[in-house]
């Protein structure tokens, strides 16, 4: 009895999650004419309106937004990984006076609401001419994930056997050689987890992009999508909106399919920080 109830609840919730997603796909293939009939449950009529996708990509500029997001995400992922791995390596294996305090500082900002610094951040970035710039956004994204990266990677570097570093150093690798040639490759699984978590966080980020980026040619995908949603008050191209929505979710979906294990591990690691 208990078992059957649980099993039914799983199927019901499964439907609650999958149906809206399925429905998004069908909706993106409907014509505006079919939309206005109001039968939300209907399947799309033939011919399927694949034109919605090309309209989203070109007319609604999602091609541009997609490129912007990709550029920002890739550059920020690489930079953030470099900045957090170097710091984590020192904190784990070469602690100095005050490194504990510094670690505490990084971690504690994960508990502080980002919105507290939003107003000053905007004016500070603006004074450096880094507002309305993808470089500025990428730089900011780099930093906001550093505490998470440091937190996860310190664990990885701490777990490594000390002999490896000693052996590399004695072989004359030098300190930078030891780090880049020996330690980083050994921490690969940690780096992958952090890179994927950061990529997801950046791709989905909304608040900073909203505040910092003003001109449409520099929109990221999430800003573009919310902008298009706002436009729906005046035009009624729902099919295009949902095609754009799918375009924005595809990279996330692919990451999820290929890295599900790292993603759940990464999120759990982040949550247990408290």
């Amino acid at each position: 009895m208990f078992k059957r109830m649980l099993r039914v609840s799983l199927w019901v919730w499964g439907l609650c999650v999958l149906y809206p997603l399925f429905w998004t796909v069908t909706t993106s293939l409907k014509s505006t004419g079919q939309f206005n009939l109001g039968h939300a449950w209907d399947l799309p009529r033939l011919p399927l309106q694949f034109v919605n996708f090309s309209d989203a990509w070109q007319k609604a500029h999602f091609g541009t937004y997609f490129l912007n997001s990709t550029a920002v995400v890739l550059s920020a992922v690489v930079l953030s990984l470099l900045l957090s791995a170097t710091t984590a390596f020192i904190m784990a294996r070469h602690p100095f006076r005050g490194s504990g305090l510094m670690f505490g500082l990084y971690i504690s900002t994960m508990m502080i609401p980002t919105i507290l610094g939003l107003v000053p951040l905007f004016f500070f970035m603006s004074s450096l001419h880094l507002t309305n710039s993808l470089t500025g956004l990428s730089l900011l994204y780099t930093i906001i994930q550093v505490p998470f990266g440091v937190f996860v990677l310190v664990g990885f570097f701490k777990a490594m056997p000390g002999e490896l570093e000693a052996a590399a150093a004695i072989d004359g690798c030098g300190i930078f050689g030891t780090f880049f040639k020996i330690m980083l490759p050994l921490a690969r699984s940690g780096l992958v987890t952090v890179a994927i978590m950061n990529a997801l966080a950046y791709w989905n980020e909304y608040l900073f992009a909203l505040v910092l980026v003003g001109s449409p040619e520099k929109y990221t995908v999430s800003i573009g999508l919310s902008f298009l949603q706002g436009e729906m008050q005046y035009s009624v191209e729902w099919g295009v909106l949902f095609a754009a929505l799918i375009i924005s979710v595809v990279p996330v979906f692919l990451l999820y399919v290929f890295f599900q294990r790292q993603i759940t591990a990464g999120l759990t690691a982040g949550a247990l920080k408290g």
């Binding site: 170097t86 020192i90 510094m102 610094g117 939003l118 505490p147 930078f176």
Partner: peptide, 28 residues
């Protein structure tokens, strides 16, 4: 080499973190 290494590995990250995370919060 060791001192140089500590500086290169710690300072850039911390400087950017101070400017773009700590400073806005304190300034807030």
């Amino acid at each position: 080499q060791y001192t140089w290494f500590l500086i290169v590995f710690i300072v850039p990250t911390f400087a950017l973190f101070c400017l773009l995370t700590l400073y806005p919060m304190v300034r807030g």
